[in-house]
Nucleic acid binder design. Structure first.
Lengths: 345, 345
DNA sequence: CTGAAAGCGCTTACAG
DNA sequence: CTGAAAGCGCTTACAG
């Protein structure tokens, strides 16, 4: 009998299509009684409600918000901080009646979700402006909010106060009495050189801000740290090797750009019999759920990932209401001192 | 100048709308040269490509697959096993050119994503058949795959071999010499009674299968366990209280329906000075990433969550191709013996 | 290789 | 309170 549409029901009940449409979408436009008759006819005919795709086209809105993550969902979902962010965003969006669609980068399938998926707006998490998914979104002129990425004109930016957090972390080490300090960052091909020889031009905004904070505190104390960097977000092979090389002539303390990197440092140190914190202090960043659980528990800089997700959604909802696209002030951070830091021996 | 559509470009180039459509969607239908002219005009006019909502309506497919999780995304994303599943599904879908949309249960906003979001199919993870989102999906006659849920006619079912895994877990305790054993389950209002007094009718299929496995091994050994249950997926208050009550007269071993529940038992035991595994052996289920990290590391039943996600996507893609809706055989499980189990003292 | 026709299923003003 | 008209932006056969 073909597909059941508004028309099928309209004919069945003996009214026009738009009256049936009204029964579903604008209940106040018709009598209780007629509406009940229409709804029961729909039920009888197995009609589940107006087709969402048709409705999206007619209304010009889909109820869907996209999210593009740094890497593939497979990678992103391996990082508890990213997962926490997705969780917070999905929750806040749900409260506002929106659903979240995960936009992977274009793969071999030829599909580019950022270009081909119907949505009302998107949140871009920790992406370079040149990333293809991000570009596609902008070409569509979709409302976009940028999170921990490089600021772009007209795109609201959500981020924590990376510089302040990093400053506190470095300050903590200085106050403990450390002066031989290494800084471990990503997205920077530093390769174990003194910081004075390094240019930071390639770093992401987030990393650059953290560098600013660390360096300000170290500068104030007259300390020139060693920089250990990786050319990309390659937490694995390259980072491991360079951390290992750094430990050949170990500093007394390390500032890491993330808890995951800090854990890597702690593991490498353990392998070589270097004791944390007695011989090496380590400070992370993020307060990853793991940080409190490892041994020794990691000193780190906490960020409120739920607040970040809420702020991103709030900014996007404002954009959807066509309000001004203003970036809120950076979210606060807090140093959490646990047991991975101590005075140098 | 209004919105740029196929028509705008067609007029600009001097061809018909469908030729422009072909330039984007069926490149083999027109000359290289004409296509290049069209594409460059599109670029010039700031046209990002055919509108996805309109395309979805015309083509009858959206490129989006929905996922409904037991609870709100906020809750689901707190459980590493659920996160692992989402990760695996999102990854497999991306490989096939589909994007994943997270379908929350209807909230106060009046929006019911399972009913109102345009999609081509959905995966239902660990949901009761009566759950409203699940019902809405079925009313729409969307292709659906059910994961760790109660089997429904015509809906392919993906699950691990819960019974076999549970059997191995219970067998392990029996072989260690335990005979005073408690079983901790959810979705069952057991309230610390001997298993012989309990009816299992309210349990989910997953729990019921695990119960079958545990009971078979215990029956074979002539053991009647104590059942500790919670009325719902309420891992918190109720479970804590009942586990506490159980520990008033502790068994020598506990079989828990999940690693999270097992950790709860271990924590309660620690609070009361009951040593694991010396005084109490604990076996979990799932091999949650946490299981290997806690102390003592937890003996548990491992399931391959990536394989489960892949299997779910594979079954759904078959459905989308209108192939037969067959449930694959249950995925294998394996007992992982760590340090939370030992012979009774 | 190109285009005229019909259609996807709904909603939005607007008139009665 | 109800309905006729126009439109959302695209694609799918099909004819030339």
């Amino acid at each position: 009998m073909g597909r059941v549409t508004l028309k099928t029901i309209a004919e069945h009940v003996g009214v026009s299509r738009m009256t049936v449409s009204n029964a579903f979408s604008r209940p106040d436009q018709l009598s209780e009684d007629l509406r009940a008759r229409i709804l029961s006819a729909a039920d009888e005919l197995g009609y589940a409600g107006p087709d969402p795709a048709a409705r999206a086209l007619a209304r010009g809105r889909t109820g869907v918000i996209g999210m593009v993550l740094t890497n593939s969902p497979r990678d992103a979902f391996t990082d508890d901080v990213a997962v926490g962010f997705v969780r917070a965003v999905a929750g806040s969006l749900a409260d506002a009646g929106y659903s979240l669609v995960l936009l992977h980068s274009s793969g071999e399938s030829g599909v580019v979700p950022a270009r081909d998926i119907a949505m009302d707006g998107a949140i871009v998490y920790s992406c370079a402006p040149a990333m293809s998914a991000y570009t596609a979104l902008r070409e569509r002129r979709l409302p976009i909010v940028n999170v921990e990425g490089s600021p772009l004109p007209g795109v609201p930016d959500i981020s924590i106060d990376n510089a302040a957090g990093a400053y506190q972390a470095a300050r903590h080490l200085v106050e403990l009495g450390h002066s031989r300090i290494a800084v471990v960052v990503d997205a920077l091909d530093a390769d174990n050189r003194p910081s004075s020889e390094i240019s930071l031009e390639t770093a992401s905004t987030t990393i650059a801000a953290r560098m600013d904070g660390w360096m300000r505190a170290l500068d104030e104390a007259g300390i020139v740290p060693t920089l250990v960097g990786t050319p990309a977000l390659d937490i694995d092979a390259v980072l491991r090797e360079r951390v290992d090389r750094m430990l050949d002539d170990p500093p007394t303390a390390v500032l890491a750009f993330s808890d995951l990197a800090a854990l890597e440092v702690m593991e490498r140190a353990r392998d070589r019999g270097i004791r944390v914190p007695e011989q090496l202090s380590v400070v992370g960043f993020d307060d990853n759920p793991l940080a409190a659980r490892v041994s020794p528990p990691l000193t780190t800089v906490r960020q409120d990932i739920d607040a970040k997700g809420e702020a991103a959604v709030k900014a996007l909802l404002a954009l959807l209401r066509e309000e001004d696209a203003e970036s809120p002030p950076p979210l606060p951070t807090a140093l959490v001192v646990r047991s991975s830091t101590a005075p140098p021996s």
